[in-house]
């Protein structure tokens, strides 16, 4: 079918290409075309640069997360210490060593007294901060080897 606007006939075009391909194919296969010599190192260099870029981004992100987690831990620990002082949790715990016999005889009341005095939210925030710090430290240690440019790519010979 001819396109009325462009006068383009698809069938004729395909038939023409196939006919020429039959003639050109033996020449193409006989030449054994190979890529230029500089292409392989260029590709390797590009991959190494890209990997180094991603490693740097990962390191920056990990450092930012660790900074945030350090500030969270610092705030949470200070608040936890203040709450321990206010509620007397450590003093109640001290009773287990100073008055162990009396505490053993009334261990349920002592346990409830200790649990009631625990500052739950500051403690949970402290644990969350430490967990975040551990995860960010793991990410930093994981991304450190990747920052070595020479080790970002190895040829498999």
């Amino acid at each position: 079918m001819k396109d009325k606007k462009t006068n383009f006939n698809a069938k004729e075009t395909v038939d023409f290409s196939l006919a020429h391909l039959d003639k050109m194919l033996p020449e193409i296969l006989a030449e054994g075309q190979e890529p230029p010599a500089y292409l392989l190192p260029k590709i390797i260099l590009a991959i190494s640069h890209r990997r180094l870029f991603y490693a740097r981004m990962e390191m920056i992100g990990s450092l930012a997360v660790s900074g945030i987690s350090l500030s969270v831990v610092f705030f949470a620990v200070s608040e936890l210490g203040r709450q321990f002082e206010q509620t007397g949790t450590l003093k109640i715990l001290f009773l287990a060593f100073s008055d162990s016999m009396a505490i053993l005889a009334n261990w349920q009341d002592f346990a409830l007294s200790f649990l009631e005095s625990l500052p739950v939210w500051p403690f949970a925030l402290t644990m969350a901060g430490f967990l975040l710090l551990l995860v960010s430290a793991g990410l930093i240690f994981n991304s450190l080897p990747k920052l070595n440019f020479n080790s970002t790519f190895k040829l498999n010979n």
Binding site: Q83, K91, I92, D109, F110, L112, S113, E116, S117, W121
Partner: peptide, 14 residues
């Protein structure tokens, strides 16, 4: 307030 909730029932320090 933050960190404070209901009063402890089984003991006190003060």
């Amino acid at each position: 307030m933050f960190g404070s909730d209901f009063i402890s029932a089984h003991g006190t320090t003060g």
